[in-house]
Write a protein that binds this DNA or RNA. Structure first.
Lengths: 193, 193
DNA sequence: TTAATTTCAGAACGATGCGTGAAAAAAATT
DNA sequence: AATTTTTTTCACGCATCGTTCTGAAATTAA
C-alpha cells in the first residue's frame, strides 16, 4: 500500500492553533507553520487543502476547547448566578497570555474566510446563550427579578468577557481583573427580590 | 530651488489612517497605501521613513482624534457621572463600522513597532484616567460613596468600553448597545449616599 | 538659458509569500 | 523481486512584499 503518515493530525492542529492564536492568520506564514508542526508542505495541502483549511481546522480546535471550558463552568447543574461568578473568577492571565484567538480573528475580518468569521460569531452567540441560560434559571428560582431582561444581561456579560480579553493584552494584573469582575457582577446581581 | 510637493501631508495621513484602521498594519500593503494616498514611493520614504513610520504617524493621527473625542465628553466641566453617561450614550456604530484601530494594533502586537504598541497603551491609560477623574469628582460632590474605589471603577469602565468595540464588529445593534450601557452604568451608579 | 535642488513617476531589486511538481522513500500486496 | 500507492523531501515557479534607484519634471536663482 502507501507510505504511512509520519505526522499526528491532532498534534499538527494543536501546534498550528498555537501559532495562529499568537500571530493571527496573516502573520502565520507557511514556512513557520511547516516548521512548527513538522508537517511537510505536500501533506499540509493534502490534509487540509492549504493555509485557509488549516486555519479553519485550527480555529475549530480552539473553539472546541473553549466550548468545553464554557460548558464546564456555565453548564454545571444547577444553573444559576453561581455559575456565572465561577466562570468569571476562573479567568486568569498566564504570564505568556497573548490575547484571544477569537478577537484576533474578528480583527482580521478582511483576510480570513467567511467560514472562519462565521464560526467565531456563532461561538460568541453560544457563549451568550450559556450566560442567558444561567440568568433565566436565576429568574426562575428567584435570584433575579421576574422582569429581568436576561437577553440584555447576557449581552452585557459577553461584552465584559471580551473587554477582559483585551485588558489581558500587555501586562494584565489578575488582582485588577478580580476588581473589575467584582464590579461587573456585583452591580449586575444586586437586584434581589 | 526644488520642486514643490504635490501632496498634503495631513491628507496623506488621514487616508493612510483609514486604511490601517480598516485592515491593520500587516494588511495595508505599500501598493495600496501608495494608491489610496496618491503619494509616490519616494515621497513616502522621504516624508515618513517607510511603512513603519507612516503607520506610527497615522496611529498618532487616530489617537489625537480619539483623545479629542474623549476630552470633549469626559473633560467637560463640571466633571461627574453625567460625563460618563454622556460618553457611553454617544457611542454609536456607523453602518461601515469596522472595529477599533486601537484594538487592531493590540492584536498585531507581534508586527507593529514597540513605539506603536506603547502609544496605544499610553492612550488607554489616559482614557482610564479621564474616567477616574470623573469618578473622583463624583465622590467629592457626593454622587458616589467616599469609600468608592475609583481606580477599579475606571478599569471596569475601560473594560466595558473595549468590550463594546469588539461587540461592534459584525452587525452591531445600537439599541442592544444602549441596553448594555444601561446595565453597565445603571447598577454602577446606584450606590448613593 | 543654465545650474542646482527637490519631487514625481515608475521601474528594478532582493527577499519572502503561497502553491505546485517531481523524484525518492516507505509500506503493503502479489 | 516487482508493482502499486501514498507520503516525504526538496526544489521550483510565480506573485507579492517593502525598499531602493534612476531619469524626468518642476521650481528657483543666477
Amino acid at each position: 500500500m502507501g507510505r504511512k503518515k509520519a505526522y499526528d493530525r491532532n498534534e499538527v492542529l494543536e501546534r498550528a492553533m498555537d501559532l495562529f492564536w499568537r500571530v493571527g492568520y496573516e502573520g502565520a506564514h507557511l514556512s513557520a507553520l511547516v516548521e512548527i508542526t513538522g508537517l511537510n508542505r505536500f501533506s499540509l495541502y493534502k490534509e487540509f487543502g492549504g493555509k485557509e483549511g488549516l486555519f479553519e481546522e485550527a480555529l475549530l480546535c480552539y473553539l472546541n476547547g473553549a466550548r468545553d471550558s464554557y460548558q464546564k463552568l456555565l453548564g454545571k447543574q444547577p444553573l444559576g448566578l453561581d455559575n456565572i461568578r465561577s466562570y468569571f473568577h476562573a479567568l486568569t492571565y498566564s504570564p505568556d497570555y497573548h490575547g484571544c484567538f477569537i478577537i484576533n480573528t474578528l480583527s482580521e475580518k478582511h483576510v480570513v474566510t467567511d467560514t472562519a468569521f462565521t464560526l467565531v460569531k456563532k461561538f460568541t452567540e453560544e457563549a451568550k446563550d450559556l450566560f442567558k441560560a444561567n440568568l433565566d434559571a436565576a429568574v426562575e428560582v428567584g435570584q433575579l427579578k421576574k422582569k429581568s431582561d436576561t437577553k440584555a444581561m447576557a449581552e452585557y456579560l459577553l461584552t465584559v468577557d471580551q473587554g477582559l480579553s483585551i485588558y489581558g493584552i500587555g501586562d494584565p494584573d489578575n488582582q485588577v481583573k478580580e476588581q473589575i469582575v467584582s464590579i461587573a457582577l456585583g452591580q449586575l446581581f444586586t437586584e434581589k427580590l
